[in-house]
Protein backbone atom coordinates (compact mmCIF):
# COMPACT_ATOMS: atom_id res chain seq x y z
CA UNK A 1 0.00 0.00 0.00
CA UNK A 2 2.77 2.55 0.80
CA UNK A 3 4.28 1.73 -2.58
CA UNK A 4 0.95 2.44 -4.28
CA UNK A 5 0.60 5.78 -2.54
CA UNK A 6 4.20 6.58 -3.44
CA UNK A 7 3.67 5.75 -7.10
CA UNK A 8 0.49 7.82 -7.23
CA UNK A 9 2.32 10.80 -5.74
CA UNK A 10 5.26 10.24 -8.07
CA UNK A 11 2.99 10.34 -11.13
CA UNK A 12 1.40 13.56 -9.93
CA UNK A 13 4.72 15.23 -9.12
CA UNK A 14 6.91 13.96 -11.94
CA UNK A 15 4.63 14.44 -14.92
CA UNK A 16 5.41 18.15 -15.53
CA UNK A 17 9.10 17.20 -15.52
CA UNK A 18 8.72 15.32 -18.81
CA UNK A 19 7.75 18.50 -20.60
CA UNK A 20 11.01 20.01 -19.36
CA UNK A 21 12.96 17.14 -20.94
CA UNK A 22 10.94 17.45 -24.12
CA UNK A 23 11.49 21.17 -24.45
CA UNK A 24 15.20 20.80 -23.72
CA UNK A 25 15.45 18.28 -26.54
CA UNK A 26 13.68 20.60 -28.92
CA UNK A 27 15.93 23.45 -27.85
CA UNK A 28 18.99 21.30 -28.46
CA UNK A 29 17.87 20.60 -32.02
CA UNK A 30 17.11 24.26 -32.60
CA UNK A 31 20.54 25.22 -31.28
CA UNK A 32 19.09 27.06 -28.31
CA UNK A 33 19.86 26.73 -24.65
CA UNK A 34 16.23 26.09 -23.79
CA UNK A 35 14.11 26.69 -20.76
CA UNK A 36 14.93 25.11 -17.37
CA UNK A 37 13.90 21.51 -16.85
CA UNK A 38 11.44 22.60 -14.20
CA UNK A 39 9.88 25.38 -16.29
CA UNK A 40 6.37 23.88 -16.27
CA UNK A 41 6.41 23.77 -12.46
CA UNK A 42 7.30 27.48 -12.39
CA UNK A 43 4.55 28.24 -14.89
CA UNK A 44 1.95 26.34 -12.93
CA UNK A 45 2.91 27.98 -9.64
CA UNK A 46 2.89 31.39 -11.28
CA UNK A 47 -0.59 30.78 -12.67
CA UNK A 48 -1.89 29.50 -9.36
CA UNK A 49 -1.04 32.85 -7.75
CA UNK A 50 -3.04 34.85 -10.26
CA UNK A 51 -6.57 36.20 -10.17
CA UNK A 52 -9.07 35.40 -12.89
CA UNK A 53 -10.79 37.07 -15.81
CA UNK A 54 -13.97 35.48 -17.07
CA UNK A 55 -15.71 36.25 -20.28
CA UNK A 56 -19.12 37.86 -19.96
CA UNK A 57 -20.44 35.15 -22.26
CA UNK A 58 -19.40 32.22 -20.11
CA UNK A 59 -21.36 30.22 -17.57
CA UNK A 60 -20.41 27.65 -14.96
CA UNK A 61 -19.59 25.19 -17.74
CA UNK A 62 -16.49 27.26 -18.52
CA UNK A 63 -15.18 26.74 -15.00
CA UNK A 64 -16.32 23.12 -14.90
CA UNK A 65 -14.22 22.38 -17.99
CA UNK A 66 -10.75 22.47 -16.38
CA UNK A 67 -12.01 21.11 -13.06
CA UNK A 68 -13.70 18.04 -14.53
CA UNK A 69 -10.93 17.43 -17.05
CA UNK A 70 -8.19 17.50 -14.44
CA UNK A 71 -10.25 15.37 -12.05
CA UNK A 72 -10.98 12.81 -14.74
CA UNK A 73 -7.31 12.57 -15.68
CA UNK A 74 -6.21 12.23 -12.05
CA UNK A 75 -8.87 9.57 -11.47
CA UNK A 76 -7.66 7.79 -14.59
CA UNK A 77 -4.17 7.74 -13.09
CA UNK A 78 -5.44 5.34 -10.41
CA UNK A 79 -5.70 2.72 -13.14
CA UNK A 80 -2.25 3.02 -14.67
CA UNK A 81 0.43 0.66 -13.36
CA UNK A 82 3.83 1.95 -12.29
CA UNK A 83 7.02 0.32 -13.50
CA UNK A 84 5.41 -3.07 -13.87
CA UNK A 85 3.81 -2.84 -10.43
CA UNK A 86 0.02 -2.98 -10.22
CA UNK A 87 -1.94 0.23 -10.22
CA UNK A 88 -3.75 1.70 -7.21
CA UNK A 89 -7.02 0.24 -8.47
CA UNK A 90 -7.14 -2.61 -10.92
CA UNK A 91 -9.97 -4.70 -12.28
CA UNK A 92 -10.85 -6.53 -15.46
CA UNK A 93 -12.01 -4.01 -18.01
CA UNK A 94 -10.31 -0.97 -16.50
CA UNK A 95 -9.01 -0.30 -20.02
CA UNK A 96 -12.54 0.70 -21.00
CA UNK A 97 -13.00 2.99 -18.03
CA UNK A 98 -9.62 4.63 -18.63
CA UNK A 99 -10.41 5.54 -22.23
CA UNK A 100 -13.85 6.79 -21.27
CA UNK A 101 -12.43 8.92 -18.47
CA UNK A 102 -10.19 10.59 -21.03
CA UNK A 103 -13.35 10.98 -23.11
CA UNK A 104 -15.05 12.68 -20.18
CA UNK A 105 -12.11 15.09 -19.88
CA UNK A 106 -12.35 15.89 -23.57
CA UNK A 107 -16.12 16.31 -23.44
CA UNK A 108 -15.83 19.01 -20.79
CA UNK A 109 -12.83 20.73 -22.39
CA UNK A 110 -14.79 21.01 -25.62
CA UNK A 111 -17.89 22.33 -23.86
CA UNK A 112 -15.81 24.91 -21.98
CA UNK A 113 -14.40 26.03 -25.32
CA UNK A 114 -17.87 26.33 -26.86
CA UNK A 115 -19.01 28.27 -23.80
CA UNK A 116 -16.88 31.27 -24.74
CA UNK A 117 -18.82 31.78 -27.97
CA UNK A 118 -15.56 32.46 -29.78
CA UNK A 119 -15.20 31.17 -33.34
CA UNK A 120 -11.59 30.24 -32.70
CA UNK A 121 -12.46 28.04 -29.79
CA UNK A 122 -15.34 26.49 -31.68
CA UNK A 123 -12.90 25.66 -34.43
CA UNK A 124 -10.48 24.04 -32.00
CA UNK A 125 -13.29 22.11 -30.34
CA UNK A 126 -14.52 20.81 -33.66
CA UNK A 127 -11.04 19.62 -34.65
CA UNK A 128 -10.37 18.02 -31.28
CA UNK A 129 -13.58 16.01 -31.61
CA UNK A 130 -12.74 14.97 -35.14
CA UNK A 131 -9.29 13.70 -34.23
CA UNK A 132 -10.46 11.88 -31.13
CA UNK A 133 -12.94 10.05 -33.32
CA UNK A 134 -10.13 8.23 -35.09
CA UNK A 135 -7.70 8.01 -32.19
CA UNK A 136 -10.10 6.26 -29.83
CA UNK A 137 -10.81 3.14 -31.95
CA UNK A 138 -7.09 2.82 -32.69
CA UNK A 139 -6.28 2.87 -28.99
CA UNK A 140 -9.03 0.34 -28.23
CA UNK A 141 -7.87 -1.97 -30.99
CA UNK A 142 -4.22 -1.76 -29.90
CA UNK A 143 -5.14 -2.57 -26.33
CA UNK A 144 -7.31 -5.42 -27.59
CA UNK A 145 -4.23 -6.88 -29.29
CA UNK A 146 -2.24 -6.58 -26.08
CA UNK A 147 -5.10 -8.12 -24.14
CA UNK A 148 -5.26 -11.03 -26.53
CA UNK A 149 -1.53 -11.67 -26.47
CA UNK A 150 -1.11 -11.43 -22.71
CA UNK A 151 -4.48 -12.95 -21.86
CA UNK A 152 -5.16 -10.10 -19.44
CA UNK A 153 -7.97 -7.57 -19.33
CA UNK A 154 -6.58 -4.86 -17.09
CA UNK A 155 -3.68 -2.45 -17.45
CA UNK A 156 -2.02 -3.87 -14.38
CA UNK A 157 -2.45 -7.38 -15.75
CA UNK A 158 -1.05 -6.51 -19.16
CA UNK A 159 1.89 -4.43 -18.01
CA UNK A 160 3.03 -6.44 -15.03
CA UNK A 161 3.44 -9.72 -16.92
CA UNK A 162 6.82 -8.57 -18.23
CA UNK A 163 5.67 -7.50 -21.65
CA UNK A 164 9.20 -7.49 -23.01
CA UNK A 165 9.24 -11.28 -22.86
CA UNK A 166 6.53 -11.39 -25.50
CA UNK A 167 8.59 -9.47 -28.03
CA UNK A 168 10.53 -12.45 -29.44
CA UNK A 169 7.31 -14.33 -30.25
CA UNK A 170 4.97 -11.45 -31.02
CA UNK A 171 7.55 -9.00 -32.35
CA UNK A 172 5.55 -7.82 -35.37
CA UNK A 173 2.40 -7.40 -33.29
CA UNK A 174 4.18 -5.33 -30.69
CA UNK A 175 5.99 -3.31 -33.29
CA UNK A 176 2.70 -2.36 -34.98
CA UNK A 177 0.92 -1.74 -31.70
CA UNK A 178 3.76 0.50 -30.58
CA UNK A 179 3.45 2.46 -33.81
CA UNK A 180 -0.31 2.82 -33.45
CA UNK A 181 -0.18 3.84 -29.81
CA UNK A 182 2.63 6.27 -30.54
CA UNK A 183 0.52 8.04 -33.18
CA UNK A 184 -2.43 8.15 -30.80
CA UNK A 185 -0.08 9.43 -28.11
CA UNK A 186 1.10 12.28 -30.33
CA UNK A 187 -2.45 13.18 -31.31
CA UNK A 188 -3.94 13.01 -27.83
CA UNK A 189 -1.17 15.15 -26.40
CA UNK A 190 -1.38 17.68 -29.25
CA UNK A 191 2.16 17.16 -30.52
CA UNK A 192 3.70 17.64 -33.95
CA UNK A 193 2.80 16.39 -36.57
CA UNK A 194 -0.84 16.62 -35.45
CA UNK A 195 -0.82 19.86 -33.53
CA UNK A 196 1.89 22.35 -32.67
CA UNK A 197 1.88 23.44 -29.03
CA UNK A 198 4.05 26.45 -29.87
CA UNK A 199 2.05 27.78 -32.76
CA UNK A 200 1.24 31.48 -32.71
CA UNK A 201 -1.77 31.70 -34.96
CA UNK A 202 -5.19 30.96 -33.50
CA UNK A 203 -6.45 29.65 -36.81
CA UNK A 204 -3.97 26.79 -36.92
CA UNK A 205 -4.17 25.78 -33.28
CA UNK A 206 -6.15 22.81 -32.08
CA UNK A 207 -5.73 22.15 -28.41
CA UNK A 208 -4.22 25.53 -27.51
CA UNK A 209 -7.04 27.49 -29.08
CA UNK A 210 -9.66 25.68 -27.02
CA UNK A 211 -8.14 27.04 -23.84
CA UNK A 212 -7.46 30.52 -25.19
CA UNK A 213 -9.80 32.23 -22.75
CA UNK A 214 -8.72 30.29 -19.69
CA UNK A 215 -6.29 31.94 -17.32
CA UNK A 216 -5.00 31.79 -13.78
CA UNK A 217 -5.94 28.73 -11.74
CA UNK A 218 -8.07 27.33 -14.55
CA UNK A 219 -5.20 27.45 -16.99
CA UNK A 220 -2.86 25.95 -14.39
CA UNK A 221 -5.31 23.04 -14.08
CA UNK A 222 -5.32 22.63 -17.84
CA UNK A 223 -1.53 22.63 -18.13
CA UNK A 224 -1.19 20.23 -15.26
CA UNK A 225 -3.92 17.95 -16.60
CA UNK A 226 -2.15 17.85 -19.97
CA UNK A 227 1.10 16.88 -18.24
CA UNK A 228 -0.53 14.05 -16.28
CA UNK A 229 -2.26 12.81 -19.43
CA UNK A 230 1.09 12.85 -21.25
CA UNK A 231 2.53 10.68 -18.49
CA UNK A 232 -0.39 8.25 -18.43
CA UNK A 233 -0.47 7.61 -22.15
CA UNK A 234 3.32 7.52 -22.18
CA UNK A 235 3.19 4.73 -19.62
CA UNK A 236 1.42 2.57 -22.19
CA UNK A 237 4.36 3.02 -24.55
CA UNK A 238 7.10 2.62 -21.94
CA UNK A 239 5.25 -0.32 -20.44
CA UNK A 240 5.78 -2.34 -23.59
CA UNK A 241 9.50 -2.47 -22.80
CA UNK A 242 9.18 -3.50 -19.16
CA UNK A 243 10.54 -6.76 -17.91
CA UNK A 244 8.89 -8.74 -15.15
CA UNK A 245 9.46 -6.77 -11.98
CA UNK A 246 12.16 -8.43 -9.95
CA UNK A 247 14.71 -5.84 -8.95
CA UNK A 248 12.65 -4.32 -6.17
CA UNK A 249 10.41 -1.30 -6.24
CA UNK A 250 13.11 1.38 -5.97
CA UNK A 251 15.23 0.01 -8.80
CA UNK A 252 12.21 -0.57 -11.02
CA UNK A 253 11.02 2.95 -10.41
CA UNK A 254 14.36 4.43 -11.32
CA UNK A 255 14.48 2.46 -14.58
CA UNK A 256 10.90 3.43 -15.32
CA UNK A 257 11.50 7.15 -14.81
CA UNK A 258 14.50 6.85 -17.09
CA UNK A 259 12.33 5.14 -19.70
CA UNK A 260 9.74 7.90 -19.50
CA UNK A 261 12.47 10.50 -19.94
CA UNK A 262 13.73 8.65 -23.00
CA UNK A 263 10.19 8.73 -24.34
CA UNK A 264 10.12 12.50 -23.83
CA UNK A 265 13.41 12.78 -25.70
CA UNK A 266 12.00 10.68 -28.56
CA UNK A 267 8.94 12.94 -28.77
CA UNK A 268 11.29 15.93 -28.76
CA UNK A 269 13.26 14.44 -31.65
CA UNK A 270 10.03 13.73 -33.56
CA UNK A 271 8.83 17.27 -32.97
CA UNK A 272 12.14 18.73 -34.09
CA UNK A 273 12.55 16.68 -37.22
CA UNK A 274 9.01 16.50 -38.56
CA UNK A 275 6.91 19.25 -40.03
CA UNK A 276 3.35 19.66 -38.99
CA UNK A 277 0.77 18.00 -41.21
CA UNK A 278 -1.85 20.00 -43.02
CA UNK A 279 -5.06 19.89 -41.02
CA UNK A 280 -6.85 17.97 -43.73
CA UNK A 281 -4.16 15.30 -43.66
CA UNK A 282 -4.37 14.68 -39.92
CA UNK A 283 -7.30 12.24 -40.15
CA UNK A 284 -5.31 10.24 -42.70
CA UNK A 285 -2.40 10.10 -40.29
CA UNK A 286 -4.70 8.86 -37.55
CA UNK A 287 -6.21 6.28 -39.85
CA UNK A 288 -2.68 4.93 -40.27
CA UNK A 289 -2.81 4.26 -36.53
CA UNK A 290 -6.14 2.51 -36.96
CA UNK A 291 -4.75 0.43 -39.82
CA UNK A 292 -1.62 -0.48 -37.87
CA UNK A 293 -3.64 -1.61 -34.89
CA UNK A 294 -5.99 -3.60 -37.11
CA UNK A 295 -3.09 -5.37 -38.80
CA UNK A 296 -1.53 -5.99 -35.40
CA UNK A 297 -4.72 -7.61 -34.24
CA UNK A 298 -4.94 -9.80 -37.30
CA UNK A 299 -1.38 -10.93 -36.64
CA UNK A 300 -2.32 -12.00 -33.13
CA UNK A 301 -4.80 -14.42 -34.70
CA UNK A 302 -1.95 -16.36 -36.29
CA UNK A 303 -1.33 -18.58 -33.31
Amino acid sequence: MPAKIAQFILVLTLSPFLFGVLNRTKAFFAGRKGSPLLQLYYDIFKLLRKGAVYSTTTTWVFIAGPVVSLSAVITASFLIPWAGHPAVIQFDGDIILFIYLLGLARFFTVLAALDTGSSFEGMGASREMQFALFAEPALFLSLASLARVTGQMSFSGIFSTGVINFWPVYGPVFFLVFGAVFIVFLAENSRIPVDDPNTHLELTMIHEVMVLDHGGVDFAYILYGAAVKFWLLGTLLAGMFLGASSRGWMMDSAVFILQMSVLAVIVGVVESTLARLRLLKVPHFLIIALALSAVAFILTMRS
Binding site: Y54, V68, S118
Partner: peptide, 23 residues
Protein backbone atom coordinates in the same frame (compact mmCIF):
# COMPACT_ATOMS: atom_id res chain seq x y z
CA UNK B 1 -13.76 16.86 -8.33
CA UNK B 2 -14.72 18.16 -4.89
CA UNK B 3 -11.04 18.49 -3.94
CA UNK B 4 -10.12 20.36 -7.12
CA UNK B 5 -13.08 22.68 -6.67
CA UNK B 6 -12.09 23.41 -3.07
CA UNK B 7 -8.48 23.91 -4.10
CA UNK B 8 -9.55 26.30 -6.83
CA UNK B 9 -11.64 28.24 -4.37
CA UNK B 10 -8.79 28.55 -1.88
CA UNK B 11 -6.41 29.72 -4.63
CA UNK B 12 -8.87 32.31 -5.83
CA UNK B 13 -9.87 33.62 -2.40
CA UNK B 14 -8.74 37.18 -1.97
CA UNK B 15 -7.79 37.57 -5.63
CA UNK B 16 -9.31 39.89 -8.18
CA UNK B 17 -11.90 38.32 -10.45
CA UNK B 18 -13.05 40.45 -13.34
CA UNK B 19 -15.37 39.92 -16.27
CA UNK B 20 -14.50 40.90 -19.78
CA UNK B 21 -15.70 39.98 -23.28
CA UNK B 22 -14.31 36.87 -24.94
CA UNK B 23 -10.96 37.30 -26.70
Amino acid sequence: VVLTVLLRRSFLSGRVITRFPTW
